[in-house]
């Protein structure tokens, strides 16, 4: 199975991914409709694209009252079935990562579907900060982050 592998160190904050994604979504260049967002942390000299993880325990999917979010057999992506979606917006609320959106024009939810296996953001990235590659490869930057998160968790439960 392939997934979007994001390497923040390579990102320059150029927004080509946002442009490409909004292009796929709307047929225009409209970063406000992009499903991938580049976070710019000026004070830390750091840029990071960020989109749906396609998480295993997908809360958007489990929260949907009409079962309008399904798993694509080809890519494993959680995809919104527009015909079924009633636009209640529960999935957008349920997503802990803020990567499910509500489209006020179509009154439907929309989220990253990995472009049916050919993600436009990864293709557009000029520096290789977004790769569409086989999972199983551990991202080296993830380890300290995970430690930090776990530490917070331990701090909380130990009072």
């Amino acid at each position: 199975m392939k997934a979007l592998n994001i390497i923040p160190e390579k990102c320059t904050g150029c927004m080509q991914c946002e442009l490409a994604c909004s292009w796929v979504q709307t047929g225009t260049f409209q970063p406000s409709r992009s499903l991938i967002r580049v976070n710019i942390f000026d004070e830390l000299a750091s840029y990071s694209p960020y989109t749906c993880f396609q998480c295993e325990e997908a809360w958007c999917m489990t929260s949907c009252p009409t079962n309008a979010i399904a798993i694509s057999p080809a890519t494993g992506a959680k995809v919104v079935l527009e015909q079924v979606c009633v636009g209640c917006g529960l999935c957008a609320i349920a997503c802990p990562f803020g990567t499910v959106f509500y489209n006020p024009d179509t009154h439907k939810a929309y989220k990253c579907d990995l472009c049916a296996g050919d993600p436009a953001c990864a293709k557009a990235c000029p520096t290789g900060a977004i790769e569409y590659s086989e999972v199983g490869r551990e991202a080296p930057w993830l380890e300290p982050w995970r430690e930090m998160v776990n530490q917070n968790y331990l701090d909380v439960i130990s009072g």
Binding site: T12, C14, L19, T127
Partner: peptide
Amino acid sequence: LITNKACFACTIACGRV
């Protein structure tokens, strides 16, 4: 140098941080 910074839509990224 810490990293390169690009302007909007720039695929060169000459900016220096």
